[in-house]
Amino acid sequence: MDKRFKIAHREAWIGVILVVINFIWWYGFGYGLGSAKVEQYSYIFGLPAWFFYSCILGSIIMIVLVILAVKFLFKDVPFEDEEGDVK
């Protein structure tokens, strides 16, 4: 198999793992904290805590994870055959 495909497969899996983390974080805080009675909500920067953690902090964390994954786990490969390892 083309060596570049190994890298590509690994990176596709990283994408899947990131979505799973994203979903769990989003769901966990969104419905975990958000299911309480509205009168018992706590607030962060004026926003309900469930919303702050799930949507604001969650987005920031995902962006940081995406940056880290791309910087440290993704590899540069050539796309044209003549430059790369031909099978």
Binding site: E11, G15, V16, L18
Partner: peptide, 10 residues
């Protein structure tokens, strides 16, 4: 990120 990572280099 998902679209570009999954379709990605392959």
């Amino acid at each position: 990120y998902f679209v570009l990572m999954v379709l990605g280099k392959k």
